[in-house]
Each structure stands twice: as structure tokens, then as C-alpha cells.
Design a protein around this nucleic acid. Structure first.
Length: 473
DNA sequence: TGAAATGTTGGGGCG
DNA sequence: ACGCCCCAACATTTC
């Protein structure tokens, strides 16, 4: 039985079999394929995956392996510096090629180029594919050829580029090599927490893998899309798609989302303002990825250089209170506890909590970004960096710095009955109605719930003064 | 993808 | 009947 040498299919943040250009192209060659995932905690400059993400990754790799096995293949696991591991395994199996999906994080382009050069030297074909975005960063430009810095024109340019977004099917079968190289055992990677096992809440809320992603999307399109424009701002309701972790790990592609959503629109006949608003959020994701690609420093430094002089405070105690959800502001604390428990926070509440950290507490947005990086199952360098800078006021097309969220008003507006707060802050279960958002105003209600760590009005004034400092000079 | 301060308007109470 | 004041309610400006 003579078979041609295998192609390495390097999986990264594209843990799916459907709509996967690199996989489809590899299958089309007819060559045997070795699907490979590398746990890389070593390449310099790469943000090491956080705890919640690792938990997710375990389930996602498990699901991908099962999916591949159903197609007659399997997933090989290795750990180490991606570039070294790839060279090593390519030699080991006498690979004829390596195919993978490109990334958009700070060192991705350089690392991918180095890998391509390695393989060129070895005489092995190296092919890079898109697939994790609707539009490649090179393809969306202003009239003068520069990348967009403002969302709305970027959004319009995307819609002009096209909205068809064809998708690729799951291959019918994936040819195996004559012999499989060795693989690490997933369990040995210890991606899931043991002592203590804090992942109980995560298990309850999520089903990592592309089947889970598909379920989420279907549920969203059939049950939530219509009310999305208003309900997406209501943390007390399940109004959002909750697709973010699935998207981050590439268990579902933005093209699949786009196409399914358009299809649902065509079939329903009802107004599709909800679906339009939803797809707009998908374009926000594109925008963040393009920003990170063009300005890789936004994960480490303010996009707007003025903010280099911003007088951030160092305040361990307040940072700790924020992280634990004991700031004394119910909507903030509910969000931070939802995050700790489920690895996810409702987007409206992310904005409120982030505004509170950067403006009420004047703590650097990077502290918040780091915490989110470790605790979010959807932690994504592009979305996380761009969104934190957006809230902090230092980002591209950012909210003006003086836009300070009032956590009490935001609470009464978006959690009017207090259901969200009661769910995550049991100390306030005695409170009814909207006075739950300012429990210090009612007497005798709160037993063990902390008093506000800062006064809203004073903190707001302090934030505005801090802003004046960097604006004047 | 704000909030608070300030300005304007118009109905009603009242001398 | 009239003007004055008060103050919601809404609009605009400023932070």
C-alpha cells in the first residue's frame, strides 16, 4: 500500500471541521492528513492562555478529536514552541506539506513567516489560509489605502465588499497516514483545574465544541434574534447569542454565522433589525481583529498616545474588591461574580464593570484586561484589548473619556427588577425592585453586603480631573 | 453602546 | 383677567 507523504494540518484557533479552508484544501489534495494541535506556552511574546480558556480548550480539543474520528481521522497533541514542534514532527513523519489558518495576534505574522521560511528550506510546502474572519485585514482599507480607525465607516466598507460569504462543508472523510505519530494525552496537559476544582459553574453553563456552537446559534436565531436589539442590553434576560467562546476557539466560523443568519432572515419574512444588529456585532469582532493586526501594540499600550500620561492609580485593595465583586455597587459586583462563576459576563455589564475600574477606581485598563484574560472563557486578545481601550477612552473610535457610567442608573435601566443582581449577589436577596441598585440608601436591608468603596459623585469628579490633566498639556 | 448641568417652555396656582 | 412664579418636562450643552 503506497501512499503519498502526509500533510500536517496545524489546528490553532480554528477547532472545527466545517468551513475550514485549510482542511478542505488539504483534503482536496488526496494526501493523507495528520491533524495536529500544539499547546504553546513558550513562544516569546505570546499571551499565555488563561485558566478559564484552558478549561474550555480541553473540551474543545476533545470535541474536535471526536469529530475527526467520525471522519476516519484523529487529533495529534504536542506541546512546546510551535515553530520547533512543527519542524520536528514534519521531519518525523516526512511531511510533504503543512497547512494552517493564519492568526492576527501581535507575533503571528512574524512567527508564521519564520515557519514558512523553515519549511521552504526543508523543501516542504507551506500554505496559510484565512477562514477565521469574514474579511482579511489587507482587504478593508480607506480610500487612501490606510486601515480604518473608526467603526462606522469600517462597517460600511465591509457591507460594500460583499455579504455572500460562502462556506465550506465538513469533508466527507479525512485520509489517514499509514502510521500515526505519537500524541500527548489530553489529560496530562492538566488544562482543567483539579485542586481546587473551580470549574463547576463553567460545566453547568457551557458545551465547548462545534456542536455546542451550532446549538447556540440555532437557539439564538429561533428564539432570541427578534428581540435582540433591546434584550441584548438586559443581563437579566438571555438576550445575547453567547457565541463568543465558540468564536474565539474557531468552533464556528464568522462565515457560518453570517450565512445562517441571512438564511434565517430570508425564511422568516419578519423584520430583521435584530439579525442586522447581531451581524453588526460580528463586524465589531472583525474591526477588533483588524486593529490588532495593524497595531499589534494595542494589547500593551494605549492606541491614543495621549493616554501614556494618564495618572492611573495603583490600588491593590480596590483592584481586589473589583475582582472579587465586593465594590458595594450591585451591578458591578453581580457582573464580576458571574464572570468568576461562569467564565463569562454579559456585555452590557462588562462595559459597566470596565468603566468602574478605569474611571471610578482609576486603575489601569491593563489590570482589567489581565483579569479578564485569565477568567473569561472567551478571552480573545483582539476583542479584549480593543474593548478595554474603547471603554478606557484610549482606543480607536473610543467612548469619550468623560462618558462615565453611573452604575446605579445603569443598573436601574438594564436590570430594572434587580433579577440579575439577586441571582449573583445573594446578600441582596431581601431587596426588591430597583432600590437594590443603591442598597446603602435603604436602612436595615443589607446585612453582609459591603458599603460602596468609592462615592459615585466624588469618583466621577476625580476621573474628570484626571482626564483634564492629560488633555491640557 | 452617558450623565449631569444648564436652558427653555408651558401649564397651573395664586395674588 | 392678568402677570408672576413655580416647576415638571423636555431640550441643549458640557463634562
Amino acid at each position: 500500500m503506497s501512499r503519498s507523504p502526509p500533510i500536517l494540518l496545524w489546528f490553532r484557533q480554528d477547532l472545527r471541521a466545517g468551513d475550514h479552508p485549510a482542511l478542505s484544501a488539504a483534503v482536496a489534495t488526496g494526501a493523507p492528513i495528520i491533524p495536529l494541535y500544539i499547546l504553546d506556552d513558550e513562544t516569546p511574546g505570546v499571551w499565555k492562555m488563561g485558566g478559564a480558556s484552558r478549561w474550555w480548550l480541553h473540551g474543545s480539543l476533545d470535541a474536535l478529536d471526536a469529530k475527526l474520528r467520525a471522519l476516519g481521522s484523529r487529533l495529534i497533541l504536542r506541546c512546546g514552541t510551535a515553530r520547533e514542534v512543527l519542524k520536528h514532527i514534519a521531519t518525523e513523519v516526512s511531511a510533504q506539506g503543512i497547512y494552517f489558518t493564519r492568526g492576527y495576534s501581535p507575533h503571528d505574522a512574524a512567527d508564521e513567516n519564520a515557519i514558512a521560511a523553515d519549511f521552504k528550506n526543508m523543501g516542504v510546502e507551506c500554505r496559510r489560509f484565512g477562514g477565521n474572519l469574514l474579511f482579511e485585514p489587507e482587504a478593508v482599507r480607506t480610500k487612501t489605502g490606510t486601515p480604518f480607525k473608526v467603526f462606522t465607516p469600517f462597517y460600511r466598507a465591509c457591507l460594500t465588499q460583499g455579504t455572500a460569504h460562502e462556506t465550506l462543508n465538513v469533508p466527507k472523510a479525512i485520509p489517514s497516514p499509514q502510521a500515526w505519530p505519537t500524541s500527548d494525552l489530553l489529560k496530562r496537559w492538566s488544562l482543567r483545574p483539579a485542586n481546587p476544582d473551580w470549574a463547576g459553574g463553567l460545566k453547568e453553563h457551557w458545551q465547548p465544541g462545534s456542536d455546542g456552537a451550532k446549538d447556540r446559534l440555532e437557539t439564538f436565531l429561533t428564539e432570541r434574534a427578534t428581540t435582540y436589539p433591546s434584550d441584548r442590553d438586559r443581563p437579566d434576560r438571555e438576550g445575547t447569542s453567547a457565541l463568543s467562546p465558540h468564536l474565539h476557539f474557531g468552533e464556528i466560523s464568522p462565515r457560518q454565522i453570517w450565512r445562517q443568519t441571512m438564511k434565517a432572515s430570508a425564511e422568516s419574512g419578519t423584520g430583521d433589525s435584530g439579525r442586522t444588529a447581531f451581524l453588526r456585532e460580528i463586524i465589531w469582532r472583525e474591526f477588533s481583529h483588524h486593529l490588532l493586526h495593524h497595531w499589534p501594540q494595542i494589547s500593551e499600550a494605549p492606541f491614543n498616545a495621549t493616554f501614556k500620561r494618564f495618572p492611573w492609580r495603583s490600588d491593590e485593595q480596590s483592584l481586589d474588591a473589583w475582582q472579587r465583586g465586593t465594590t458595594g455597587y450591585p451591578i458591578v459586583d453581580a457582573g464580576m461574580r458571574q464572570l468568576w462563576h461562569t467564565g463569562w459576563m454579559h456585555n452590557r455589564v462588562r462595559m459597566i464593570a470596565a468603566s468602574f475600574l478605569t474611571k471610578h477606581l482609576l486603575i489601569h485598563w491593563q489590570e482589567g484586561a489581565r483579569w479578564f484574560w485569565d477568567t473569561l472563557v472567551d478571552a480573545d486578545l483582539a476583542n479584549n484589548s480593543a474593548s478595554w481601550q474603547w471603554v478606557a477612552g484610549s482606543g480607536a473610535d473610543a467612548a469619550p473619556y468623560f462618558r462615565v457610567f453611573n452604575p446605579i442608573l445603569q443598573g436601574t435601566k438594564f436590570d430594572p427588577d434587580g433579577d440579575y443582581v439577586r441571582r449573583w449577589v445573594p446578600e441582596l436577596s431581601n431587596f426588591s425592585g430597583r432600590n437594590i441598585h443603591a442598597p446603602w440608601e435603604s436602612s436595615g436591608g443589607s446585612s453582609n453586603y459591603p458599603a460602596p468603596i468609592v462615592d459615585h459623585k466624588a469618583a466621577r469628579q476625580r476621573a474628570l480631573l484626571a482626564y483634564d490633566e492629560i488633555r491640557k498639556k
